[in-house]
Nucleic acid binder design. Sequence first.
DNA 1: CTCGATTGCTTGAAGTATCAAGCTCTATGA
DNA 2: TCATAGAGCTTGATACTTCAAGCAATCGAG
Lengths: 167, 167
Amino acid sequence: MNTASADEPRWLSDEEQRVWRAYLHATTLLDDHLDRQLQRDAGMPHIYYGLLVALDEAPHRRLRMTELAMKAKITRSRLSHAIARLEKNGWVRREDCDSDKRGQFAVLTDEGHEVLRRTAPGHVAAVRQAVFDRLSPDQQKALGEAMRLIAEGLQPKEAGADLPWLR
Amino acid sequence: MNTASADEPRWLSDEEQRVWRAYLHATTLLDDHLDRQLQRDAGMPHIYYGLLVALDEAPHRRLRMTELAMKAKITRSRLSHAIARLEKNGWVRREDCDSDKRGQFAVLTDEGHEVLRRTAPGHVAAVRQAVFDRLSPDQQKALGEAMRLIAEGLQPKEAGADLPWLR
DNA sequence: CTCGATTGCTTGAAGTATCAAGCTCTATGA
DNA sequence: TCATAGAGCTTGATACTTCAAGCAATCGAG
């Protein structure tokens, strides 16, 4: 399956390097940019905002911790800490799960929903300005496709396909 | 310049949302993946590794702090902390700047160079497997182009064009 | 020359991330 | 039905990031 010997690595070509560096630069800059924007306007980092969004879109504005972690692509541990912080802010509340006493729901509070309502326009504007305003429709499409492929390759295999809550 | 009223945000279209979510998923997954890979094999996070690479490529394996921060797209503060840690590892050393007594150079040590030599193949393999093996040449090119455009838009205007060290 | 503004970099505190270890509860199968 | 393995989530320690504040050296206007 692998014809190259292990001690002779295939380095990146010049063109591949350029692509890779562009990727690194863009992602670090954009990540920072959006973190700052949201920290300033919403008082939380980008990923926390994403958690609120995920909850807001879920039925009854609630998700099991594990499911939320998967949607957000983060570990349960990280999520636990994050939810603890959001709970302190009054934007999320925990609820026990009846059918499985180990389980916890994270529930978006009205206050949390309100924060989202108030800050979403600014955030969308920031994303639009940094990304969509700069790319042609074709470029947007290509970006989406490339990102989808990369994400698929990294997703834990068959992730989530066997979660009991999803029937 | 702006014909839309400020209180009527232009939401993302469905297709734009799909692109944006693919971007978020891919970047968080890949970032985590590479951080883990490098933490395991090289004992440092991805961005620290990038600092060593930047130094390795610089003349005399040394760069002014500010220049290094710009190349890595991070704040000086973050760089200060990072270099302190790398210094503790013996991979980087600081040197005073003769022509400007406020200035500091970060210099890659032989040990640091050796760490790079030893861990680069594994890292390149990880990048290749996660990114380049999954994208056609056209897709790679498109990804690079999109990322370049995004990065350009976020770069502090005329960044670095006026650094005295660069003449 | 001199003083105020700026540049280059660092520091400390507070917030967030990661890892391993832990707890409780559920499912499995003998 | 009971023990054991695993699932679901949390915790605490350590590392990293961020922000604001700080110090010292340089620049530039007068």
